[in-house]
Design a protein around this nucleic acid. Structure first.
Lengths: 264, 264
DNA sequence: CGCGGGCAGTTTACGGCGTAAACGAGACGG
DNA sequence: CCGTCTCGTTTACGCCGTAAACTGCCCGCG
């Protein structure tokens, strides 16, 4: 019924950490920080952030809530750990850490791979991503969703090695992170809104919608267009536009004084 | 000490709803939904979202927590109301609702005024904006931060009246909202990170930072650049770039088949 | 004047939350 | 055999959101 082109979205992989389910059955007795963090990720994916409490997370692990405090200082730090865990997968589940080493073909290829890597994370954990987006970063210049020092270092190194000035690389980092954040946060928000609409389809279905929409002719007319989901194509197009923009910045780097913040 | 150019940022107005402070002193006895909502906004601005509880909000209003439930169904709905209240100021505190009526000079002017209006809101209420950004919208196609039906209707109407096809207007709406969301959420996040760094300047200030940064030469070298705050200029430049892109889309609307999602 | 009903805010109460502190129970080297 | 150490449990406290019962007070109507 819903026109969804997501079936051929290359970033929308079936998220099958099948080992987790098996591990939960065999229940390896040892508790440790890693296991707690990934169980929390899975719990948030399944029940949402609001449902995650220390007691319930303990129960999921077959343990009392207080047992978690030996491995995690408190709930806030647990959430930080969840964010870190999810972001760090960029380094291992990519085919060998090709993001850090320079075995990519040029900075544009690097930025595209990185963008799709982050998008894959966002789509795999839609309920965790708002946390990645809005949790206060460690330093003011660690901008979500690229929250790890390693990642930022890798980003800046790749661009400066490719001929970007320090200023241009930093400007690119800022433009790139806000692009990623905006697109992906909206994409996962829309994902969440779709399921939350199915939660309560109650009330008289016509009266409210009609009175709302009759005063809004443009909304009414474009509603089918608005309901289409072209996230993958839009992401691709906006990303390519950004890369084009950055290419321009890189090449005009010599004749500098045009007042742009990009190469100031 | 911190190099801040914010002093001449036109969107960074001194937020003086002075009437509120005066009203708190004279304490007009009547409680109503509007007063509760704006007191909550002020409370979040001052103490952060986490500190807002029904009991404390009641205390701020000189009333027991349960009294609020006569005007607000519960805490979640209160937060929705807070978001709505803040967003709706786009219509009144602009010089007469010039956003809704078509007394702007062209769609580009409209989009610039709207963007700066939203930015002004974000900067005036940095702790509320993450709520505006991440609270699930009423309908899937109501994309933060443009969360009101009136606003989306106004947006689509202005663009289609200016010659945009329905498809182009919707594509512009999507590009525009993700641009706004990314830029502004990062800007307020950075604001919050700055104050939260001042909260605990404890620990040995050199050892940790040095061990962290020594392994990250590019970070170390570009740190002064990364710490600069050029948000206003970057916002302006990215906004102009987006408007240019949209202008192109509008003008090539006739020769359509280039595969772009913009004029599909 | 009296009085009854509704409005506005309070009191009481309950279950769940994060977490501090004291408390087992089993492993293990001496 | 006995400390001691590791890992998890028990108990307890204060705060949270909120359901339900309960005031005091105003105001129209006899």
């Amino acid at each position: 019924m819903t026109t969804s082109d997501d079936d051929l979205d290359p970033d929308l992989v079936a998220v099958t950490r099948g080992t987790d389910a098996a591990a939960a059955l065999t229940r390896p007795p040892g508790l440790d920080r890693e296991r707690i963090l990934w169980t929390a990720v899975e719990f948030i994916d399944r029940h949402g952030l609001a449902a995650l409490t220390m007691r319930r997370l303990g129960a999921q692990l077959g343990v009392e809530a207080m047992a978690l405090y030996r491995y995690v200082p408190g709930r806030e730090d647990l959430l930080d750990g969840v964010v870190d865990s999810v972001v760090e997968t960029l380094f291992d589940n990519e085919d060998g850490d090709d993001l850090y080493i320079e075995d990519h073909s040029g900075w544009q290829d690097y930025l595209m791979k990185l963008a799709h890597g982050v998008r894959r994370i966002a789509l795999a954990h839609p309920s965790v991503f708002p946390l990645v987006a809005s949790r206060p970063p460690a330093a003011p210049w660690v901008r979500p969703p690229l929250r790890s020092l390693r990642l930022v270092e890798s980003f800046l190194g790749t661009l400066t090695d490719s001929g970007f000035s320090d200023q241009a690389a930093v400007a690119a980092y800022r433009a790139y992170s806000s692009f990623l954040l905006g697109h992906l946060l909206l994409e996962v928000t829309q994902l969440g809104a779709q399921v939350s609409l199915l939660d309560q389809p109650e009330g008289d279905p016509k009266a409210q919608a009609a009175t709302d929409l009759d005063r809004h002719p443009n909304l009414l007319r474009t509603e089918p267009l608005l309901s289409q989901n072209k996230s993958a194509a839009e992401f691709e197009e906006a990303l390519e536009n950004l890369l084009d923009r950055l290419t321009g910045v890189l090449h005009e780097a010599k004749n500098s004084d045009d007042g742009s913040v990009m190469d100031l």
